[in-house]
């Protein structure tokens, strides 16, 4: 089966400043793929190269098996896109805008469009300029889904959406996958996409660090934990817990980060009186740390461990 996206040594410099470097990314068709990285890592640059909005310095990209540059129009007939900084024509109402975009695309199933408007609770009679960020985002999402594209490219799509609509959005993505379509979602927050995506690619400072299944990534993820005990606990009791690091015990409160399974830590803690246990969401930066800072990752180059070092410096 032809991959939905396939880049080869894709590189983009803006003058001297780095966009992305040597990105080899393959996204199989029929998946929900998360494209993760901190702000400025090169996510939008990669996406804009796929859509031929900007041109690569070197390397090439294929979308649905077609050359991103040469076959742009054929690609655009089968792909839809919601940019991160979504800007729409403020003077139009939501419905007018959807009509316009539908006409530019060609045929649109009007019934499906109305269903989408209903599901995302969009008021299509309001002018775009009067809409909040989240409501504007809904217009963009309806426009993207209504054409039933083979590939959806969504750059930070859930920004500004309330939780209920976010859930509906996730259902739409899952339905698209069930119909064999591909969804490519960029995000700088793993928790936002981890339960949605089949696989994720991680990009940092313009380089693709890894492509992993979500479960493999989670196994390596760091969890930050704080445990309040009913009594002072000895540090030695926890020192040998596998995957534990940054262990500190302040009287009866234990703080640490753990990579991988929490099983041993929880069982060890259970020997004492546990009053409270807090787990802090792992940020992407910390996942990078887990991946590369500890040297237990997939053995990428020196650039990767540098990246980890930087993160721990920043944290300190």
């Amino acid at each position: 089966m032809t991959p939905a996206i396939e880049t080869s040594h894709l590189t983009k410099y803006y003058g001297k400043s780095r966009g992305i470097v040597d990105v080899d990314l393959t996204v199989e068709a029929g998946q929900i793929f998360g494209f993760l990285g901190p702000n400025g890592a090169g996510k939008s640059t990669t996406i804009r190269l796929l859509l031929d909005l900007i041109r690569p310095t070197s390397g090439s990209a294929k979308v649905l098996g077609m050359d991103a540059r040469r076959d742009r129009l054929a690609i655009d007939r089968r792909v839809s896109y919601v940019p991160g900084e979504l800007a729409l024509y403020g003077e139009l109402t939501g419905r007018q805008l959807l009509t316009y975009f539908g006409n530019l695309q060609g045929a649109v199933d009007g019934g499906y469009r109305e269903k989408l408007i209903e599901r995302l609770e969009l008021d299509p009679t309001k002018k775009i300029k009067s809409l909040s960020r989240g409501n504007k985002q809904k217009v963009g999402l309806v426009a993207a889904f209504m054409i039933r594209p083979e590939l959806l490219i969504l750059d930070e799509p859930t920004a500004g959406l309330d939780p209920f609509i976010q859930l509906e959005f996730e259902h739409l993505c899952e339905e698209a996958r069930e119909e064999g379509r591909t969804v490519f979602i960029s995000s700088h927050q793993l928790p936002e996409v981890e339960h949605l995506c089949d696989r994720v690619g991680i990009i940092r400072e313009g380089r693709l660090l890894a492509v992993e299944s979500i479960s493999a990534l989670k196994d390596r993820a760091l969890r930050k934990l704080e445990i309040d005990f009913g009594e002072p606990v000895p540090a030695e009791a926890f020192a040998d817990v596998p995957g534990i690091r940054d262990l500190s015990i302040d009287d009866s409160t234990l703080r640490c980060t753990v990579m991988g399974s929490l099983d041993t830590l929880v069982k060890t803690a259970a020997r004492y009186e546990v009053c409270n246990l807090r787990s802090v969401d792992t940020s992407l930066e910390e996942i990078f740390l887990a991946y590369y800072g500890a040297g237990e990752g997939s053995g990428e180059g020196a650039a990767s461990s540098d990246a980890g070092k930087e993160t721990s410096d920043a944290a300190a």
Partner: peptide, 14 residues
């Protein structure tokens, strides 16, 4: 400058 060109040119228009 309005930022609308990205969406516009993601439709099949040269």
């Amino acid at each position: 400058s309005r930022g609308t060109i990205d969406v516009l040119l993601s439709y099949p228009i040269s």
